[in-house]
Simulated scan of single mutants.
Amino acid sequence: MSSRRPPRRLSEDDLAIWRQVAKSATPMHAVRPTASPAPTAPPTSPQGGRTQPPESLPAFTIGQAASYDRSKGHNLSPTLETRLAAQPVRMDQKTFTRMKRGKLRPNRKIDLHGMTLDRAHPALSRFIIAAHADGCRLVLVVTGKGRTHRDDDGPIPTPRGVLRNQVPQWLRMAPLGALVLQVTEAHKSHGGSGAYYVYLSRRR
């Protein structure tokens, strides 16, 4: 049967050394001064010129509620409408203008509204490939607009309408990207923001 050793006690000399070390040590959680430090000169670049000082942050206290202007929103990337509008026109400009005004009648139409992503993707692929093989130039892809109201978007922006945001990406990817010339939001007479015009390249 093993016996436990009694705890070792520090001698008076050890205690004296410990007290000296404790006096010279800096506490890990020292109380920070409330006054702001004196401003320092802006840093200089290797060429000797002064660099642009960083933007100053507004003053705050611990526990203070953050102010947030909901009218500004918090999107971290351009909207879907902005990205589509920024795409270069790869088709005839006159035909593109007529298409945007709803003056062209789509040759075919597919309605993906209500489908899950795993059903919608292959359905869209089959539709575009078949339409291109049959010589169609303009087709209409209906996605729906998605939810029209959200109580709270939360800290991370959530795109409105999963299919509405996903379809343009699928149309840029292989194998559909080689068959598609232009994707743009449909005219209100053909579904508006809940549908897309897809202009296909000529069959070879």
Rank of each mutant, 00 (worst) to 15 (best):
S2E: 11
R4H: 11
R4P: 09
R5Y: 06
R8P: 03
R8G: 07
D13Q: 12
Q20F: 05
A22S: 12
A25G: 06
A30I: 08
R32Q: 13
P33I: 08
T34I: 11
P37V: 02
A38I: 12
P39A: 03
P39R: 03
T40V: 13
A41H: 06
P43A: 07
T44N: 03
T51F: 07
P53N: 04
P54T: 00
L57V: 13
P58L: 06
A59C: 09
F60A: 15
T61Y: 06
G63K: 03
A65P: 10
A66S: 12
L76R: 14
S77H: 13
S77C: 11
R83G: 06
A85S: 13
A85T: 11
A85E: 14
V89W: 01
R90S: 12
Q93I: 08
T95E: 14
R98C: 11
G102T: 02
K109G: 00
H113W: 09
R119D: 13
A123H: 06
A131G: 06
A133Y: 08
A133N: 14
D134T: 09
L138G: 01
V139W: 01
T143S: 07
H149V: 13
P157N: 01
N165D: 06
N165R: 04
Q169T: 14
W170E: 02
L171E: 03
L171W: 04
R172H: 08
M173C: 09
A174G: 10
A186Q: 01
H187W: 06
H190M: 04
A195Q: 01
R204V: 12
